[in-house]
Simulated scan of single mutants.
Amino acid sequence: MPTILFAAPSLWPEYQTALPQALAEVGVTGPVVTEARPEDVDYIVYAPSSPLQDFTAYTRTKAVLSLWAGVERIVGNTTLTQPLCRMVDPGLTEGMVEWVVGHTLRHHLGMDRHIVNPGHVWDPTCPPLARERPVAVLGMGALGAACAAALQALNFPVTGWSRTERPGCLHGEDGLRQALATAQIVVLLLPKTPETENLLNAAQLALLPQGAVILNPGRGPLIDDAALLAALDAGQIGHATLDVFRVEPLPTDHPFWAHARVTVTPHIAADTRTSSAARVIAENIRRGEAGEPFLHLVDRARGY
C-alpha cells in the first residue's frame, strides 16, 4: 500500500476529496497525506510552488507527479533525481482548444470592429473563408496537436511546427521560416526552454505576412516583447492576443495594457481541472504500482 505525499499545500482543499476518489476508481488504496517522513514516501504529488524543494531524502519515492503542465521551474532542480511526470489534463486541453479556437475565429471574422463600433460605421466587408486563412501552430505537443486538429476541422489550413522532428510537422529553423512565411494567424504553444526563449524575435516577426495576428497562450518568454511592440507599431503585426507574460500579474504600467492592438487575458486560456487531473495522477500511481511505464514522463535533457 503506497504512501502518497500531497506536497502542494495551496491546492490541498481542491484535491482532498477528489484524489482519494480517483485512486479508489483505479484500485489504489494507499493513504494520501500532507506530511510524512521522506523515507516512507512512495509518490509525491507536486506543484513547483511547493515549499518542498529538496528531494534528496526521498530515496524510496518512485515518481514526482506534477499538477502543472509547465515544468521549467522544477526540471533544473539537481536534487530531483526521481522520475518526474508533468500534467497532461484532458480538461486543460479542452479549455486550451476553446481559447485558441475562440480567438482565432475572433480575429478571422474581424469581430472586434463590430463589437466595438462607437462611430456606428456600416461596414459590410465579409471576411474570407477559413480555408483561405493559413494558421501556424508552433509547438505540436498534446495541446498544440489538439488545437491544430480543432482548427483543421473548421477548414483552416494549419501548418504545425515543432522544435524536433514529428510526423506531419515542419521542424528546425528552415521549417520555422517556412511556417511563418504564409501564416496569417500564429498560435504559440511551446514550453519555455533556453531554445524557445525569444523564438519570435524581430527577424522572425518580419517573416510573417503584413497584418498577421499572434496568439500566445503558451509561455510569455516565447516572444521578444520589445520586438513585438515595434512590429505592432509598424503595422507588421496586426494584433497580438496574449495570455501569458514574463511577469505575472502583468504590471499595470506595461505597454501591452495600453496598446490598441494588444489584447491581454489574465492567464486563463487553460486551467487544470481538479477532477480530471486527479484521475491522471491516480492512473500514474496505478502504473507505478503495476510496474508499467509512467505517462507524461519529462525528458530532462529537453526540459519538458
Rank of each mutant, 00 (worst) to 15 (best):
F245H: 11
R246Q: 14
R246C: 09
V247P: 08
E248F: 11
P249L: 05
P249K: 09
P249V: 04
L250R: 08
L250D: 03
L250Y: 09
L250M: 12
L250C: 12
T252G: 14
T252W: 12
T252H: 13
T252K: 14
T252D: 15
D253I: 06
D253Q: 10
H254E: 09
P255W: 09
P255A: 02
F256K: 13
W257L: 01
W257H: 12
A258F: 06
A258R: 13
A258H: 09
A260D: 14
R261T: 06
R261V: 03
V262Y: 00
V262M: 07
V262N: 11
T263S: 15
T263P: 10
T263Q: 12
T263L: 07
V264C: 07
V264W: 13
V264H: 10
T265S: 15
T265P: 03
T265M: 00
T265R: 04
P266G: 07
P266Y: 05
H267P: 08
H267K: 00
H267Y: 01
H267A: 09
I268Q: 03
A269V: 14
A269C: 09
A269E: 05
A269Y: 08
A270Q: 02
A270L: 01
A270T: 01
T272N: 11
T272R: 00
T272Q: 13
T274I: 07
T274V: 12
T274S: 05
T274E: 04
S275W: 15
S275M: 12
S275Q: 12
S276H: 07
A277F: 07
A277C: 06
A277Y: 06
A278M: 02
A278L: 02
R279H: 12
R279E: 02
R279I: 10
V280N: 05
V280A: 01
V280K: 08
V280G: 09
V280H: 10
